[in-house]
């Protein structure tokens, strides 16, 4: 999907900020830890009450403050603790991915997915996949990142 050719840098370890919903994805991450699944160390988890809480400000600020990728994980559609919080997320994040592309940032630096409290394996799979995807994109080098 990326339009930019791989600009892999030797020894580059991507920094990933992951916003995890309190009710499903954070529990899923916990379960992955308890199950001793192998998880990439690049993830910096931020617990939020709902994936619907993840505003675009939070995503942009993470990218500008030094993250190479942002992962947003929430409950599956239909399972939201608040009923419809993730309905907003599923509209917001794809729209932001489009706007990011338009402004010249690879959309694959932002990923939304669903992880329930029981899906420890899925959490490990998604995080590993995402870290590798961002690793392939290389560091996010924007003049935007002279610190915000």
């Amino acid at each position: 999907m990326s339009e930019r050719t791989s600009n892999q840098v030797d020894g580059f370890e991507p920094k990933i900020v992951a916003f995890l919903c309190n009710w499903c994805s954070y529990a899923g991450a916990d379960a992955a830890g308890i199950s001793r699944l192998e998880l990439p160390p690049n993830i910096l988890p931020v617990r939020v009450m709902c994936s619907g809480r993840v505003s675009i400000e939070m995503v942009l600020k993470a990218l500008m403050a030094g993250a190479d990728g942002v992962l947003v994980l929430g409950c599956h559609i239909g399972d939201c603790h608040y009923g419809s919080g993730n309905h907003r997320t599923v509209k917001r994040i794809p729209l932001l991915r489009r706007l990011m592309t338009y402004m010249g940032i690879e959309p694959d630096r932002l990923r939304l997915d669903w992880v329930s409290g029981a899906e420890a394996g899925r959490f490990a799979k998604i995080t590993t996949e995402f870290v590798e995807a961002v690793r392939a994109l290389g560091p996010l080098s924007l003049p935007l990142r002279e610190g915000l």
């Binding site: 403050a65 030094g66 080098s141 990142r145 002279e146 610190g147 915000l148």
Partner: peptide, 14 residues
């Protein structure tokens, strides 16, 4: 006064 992280990862106050 702003705390910023430089592109090289240093934390500075400006």
């Amino acid at each position: 006064d702003e705390t910023v992280v430089t592109p090289t990862g240093e934390r500075i106050v400006r």
